[in-house]
Design a binder for these strands. Structure first.
Lengths: 194, 194
DNA sequence: CGTCCCGTTGACTGACCGTTCAATCGCTGG
DNA sequence: CCAGCGATTGAACGGTCAGTCAACGGGACG
């Protein structure tokens, strides 16, 4: 494991614990076991470290979303797949999710990266449009808005876990997947009658 | 209009423009047209200003939610009412919403205030439980989780407006209300059949 | 063995900005 | 007109850290 990666991983831990603004460059270096000057050999600034964390991980996330989008399956399954990818990230890497949700998602300093976030919404939107075209979802619902509502529901559950406000055992995660998926699929479904 | 309120309003504008961390106390004072020392006559610190903005406005918001909860109407209407309260805030006071969504919602510094946020979720949860008890919503969906998903969907739409990523004319707001409400109500509704 | 050179170190600096406080202002009530 | 007092001012302070840089280490290569 090279130093650069070690610094990034340390930064995720430190940002998760203190938040980006409270975190000191020295803390990151200490956690990584290097002198803090070295950080500036690999990154332009503290903010650049945060940006890198975002870009590299969001890239991986996008790749997984694209894979789901391109699979040959009906839209409802795709949406369920997306929900699972998002929510299961919590168990895999809580610190990373904490940083993404708390420090990246809405930080004014990273608004240049909006384009990359937009791509995720675009994928969800296309999946919803596919569902509408194939008759699984009812038309007349603005797919763009729906994609935001869908994503927001998932992100808020992640936030609940980050803040320690929602239980997050393995079963809890499964239940959360079910609830989010069920609301979204019933919420969008075509051909429902009372 | 007294100085204290003027300072608070200025703070909302300045925080909305730069974000809490980038905003300087001097900027707030200048915007309010007072010396920056005066801020410390009314508030203990810059952070205390943010906390005050949150507490006073969230209190008003909670009062409106409680009013909806206590009205005598079926749960679906109540949920729709809550969605409208939240989303219409954007047109009323975009700067305030910006601060709430961007700087307050997930800031590590305001986590003492979690209790007040929790109350809002509790209200939504009780409304959903009421709907389940009265047969409007299907049982078997965890009402607590559902309240987070519901709230998250709405907050994300607000975020879209804050970031300038979603159109926000009057019609757009109305459409957003419809989409969010429709997804939630179909998503939770009882007695649906394909 | 010498000499590059990349990676690494950590003492140091310098600016920023939240906060303090002594001085002044101006209203109010006697 | 004066005394008292809360409101207001803004110059000065000081603590904190992000970022710099001169020096060092050791591997690679001739």
């Amino acid at each position: 494991m090279d130093r650069r990666s070690r610094i990034l991983e340390a930064a995720v831990r430190v940002f998760a614990e203190h938040g980006f603004h409270r975190a000191r460059v020295g803390d990151i270096a200490e956690d990584a076991g290097v002198a803090h000057g070295l950080l500036y050999h690999y990154f332009a600034s503290k903010e650049d470290v945060l940006r890198t964390i975002f870009v590299e991980n969001w890239g991986r996330f996008l790749a997984r979303l694209r894979a789901v989008e391109q699979a040959e399956q009906p839209a409802p399954e795709k949406l369920a797949g997306i929900a699972k990818i998002l929510l299961r990230t919590w168990r895999n890497d809580p610190a990373l999710v904490t940083v993404m949700v708390r420090d990246v998602a809405r930080s004014p300093e990273l608004q240049e990266q909006v384009a990359e976030v937009r791509e995720a919404f675009a994928i969800v939107q296309r999946v919803i449009e596919q569902g509408q075209a194939e008759g699984d979802f009812r038309t007349g619902i603005d797919a763009r808005l729906a994609s935001w509502v869908f994503y927001g529901g998932l992100e808020e559950v992640l936030t609940g876990w980050v803040l320690g406000e929602l239980p997050d055992s393995g079963e809890d995660v499964t239940r959360a997947e079910q609830v989010a998926i069920e609301i979204a699929l019933f919420g969008l479904a075509a051909g429902l009658r009372p």
